[in-house]
């Protein structure tokens, strides 16, 4: 199942194996419960720690707060981790690397956006080199606000994630039903990479190219984008000129 599928729900890969095991198909509910229990109580964290929040992340792992005691501990490689904690500002130069590391993490996986920079870009939001929130690049399950959040706040965020997994809703980008204004508020202003709203000038193939992280290709993409923009501008200008001509002709006709 695709990572960015908005309807993605949590299913453990071991589940399929267990289901095929003779006799166990009767006990799938129990097996599911067991796997779910195991997954949520051993959330291994891959710290995508870039800036200030990384220091508070370290403080959470250190002696006072110590999230080891709920079965979470830090792994330095994405291939051994379940949760990516994005702690800190993500820049244009870093974003492709974050995406690549996220793609390397095995399913099931979750993402925690720690701190205002990872949530929305904070006061760096409008700056040329900063991504306005990590949720424009990868899907986020839990947001932990703060600048930086206290270690206790990160701990609370991880507990919320455990609850989400227990309820099997993690990975669902749930929009509160019946409250469109809330939905508008929490959805990122800049859509995810590849979203047609974000880049109307780029067709699906080029979006796929951007998502595939072929890092040798960006100039092509940029050139295509610039050409598409220029064409759109020319078309717009032509339409405006035609409208102006028509208006002038109307005026003339009125005079006559």
């Amino acid at each position: 199942m695709a990572v960015d599928d908005p309807g993605r729900s949590y299913s453990h890969p071991l589940f399929d194996t267990l289901e095929r095991f003779p006799g166990l198909d009767l006990a799938t509910t129990t097996a599911d419960k067991l796997l779910n229990w195991g997954a949520r109580n051993s959330l291994w964290i891959f710290p995508m720690a870039t800036s200030c929040c990384g220091i508070e992340f370290m403080a959470s792992a250190a002696s006072r707060v110590d999230f080891d005691r709920m079965g979470s501990f830090t792994r330095a490689t994405p291939r051994q981790a379940d949760v990516m904690v994005v702690a800190g500002t993500i820049t244009v130069k870093m974003a492709p690397r974050v995406k690549r590391l996220w793609d390397q993490m095995p399913e099931p996986k979750w993402c925690v956006a720690m701190g205002s920079c990872a949530i929305s870009g904070d006061f760096y939001r409008d700056i040329y080199s900063v991504i306005p929130g990590i949720d424009t690049v990868i899907p986020v399950d839990v947001y932990v606000p703060g600048c930086p959040p206290n270690p206790e706040a990160l701990m609370a965020g991880l507990l919320v994630l455990q609850e989400k997994i227990a309820l099997k809703t993690a990975g669902l980008k749930t929009v509160p039903a019946g409250r469109p204004e809330t939905a508008k508020m929490i959805s990122p202003r800049i859509k995810r990479v590849g979203h047609p709203d974000r880049m109307p000038e780029i067709d699906a193939a080029q979006c796929a190219q951007a998502m595939s992280l072929d890092l040798t290709e960006p100039p092509d993409l940029l050139a295509a984008f610039t050409a598409a923009q220029a064409a759109a501008k020319a078309a717009r200008e032509a339409a405006e000129a035609a409208a102006a001509d028509a208006a002038a002709a109307d005026e003339k006709g009125g005079e006559a």
């Binding site: 244009v92 492709p96 409008d126 700056i127 040329y128 080199s129 990479v193 880049m199 951007a210 960006p218």
Partner: peptide, 17 residues
């Protein structure tokens, strides 16, 4: 060059921003 006075602070950089 971003610190030139004629460079807008919000200038985007596709596809990431």
């Amino acid at each position: 060059h971003p610190l030139r006075k004629d460079y807008a602070i919000e200038t985007g950089h596709l596809p990431w921003r």
